[in-house]
């Protein structure tokens, strides 16, 4: 992966606590899985920034290589991959996501 792409990705995941690589935007998600994660974060009132991977093919492919995770969306918290839609949904249903994100929820 091109070092510039890697730097861009690292900048994004280290800039904000919670960063979502998704297809589309929070207002206009372009994929059901991305939309589900946005809805969960919105419901939890967890502030997050996002990247629309559809706008940049190098990011869309680079993020998969970066995390060795083949799908989009990808949610990062404090620079670490938490998971894709399945894992976020499971954690939310188990109450684990609320616990994990408690530092940034309600403040």
């Amino acid at each position: 992966m091109d070092s510039k792409v890697k730097e861009t990705i690292e900048g994004k995941i280290n800039n904000d606590d919670l960063h979502l690589f998704m297809k589309g935007t929070p207002l206009f998600p372009q994929c059901g899985f991305s939309s589900t994660v946005v809805q969960i974060l919105t419901y939890l009132e967890a502030p997050f920034s996002s990247t629309n991977v559809l706008e940049d093919e190098s990011i869309r492919e680079g993020i998969k290589e970066f995390s060795n995770w083949p799908t989009i969306p990808q949610l990062y918290y404090k620079g670490e991959l938490i998971g894709g839609c399945d894992i976020i949904k499971e954690m939310f249903e188990d109450g684990e996501l609320q616990e994990e994100l408690k530092d940034i929820i309600n403040n």
Binding site: G84, D86, I87, E90
Partner: peptide, 27 residues
């Protein structure tokens, strides 16, 4: 961890995830 479990499944798919296989929800 869940991430490691799911990565094992993705690895088992021999790179088909995102190519031949568009959407797979994993439990």
């Amino acid at each position: 961890s869940r991430i490691k479990q799911h990565k094992m499944v993705y690895d088992a798919l021999e790179g088909k995830m995102g190519g031949e296989l568009h959407a797979l929800s994993i439990k």
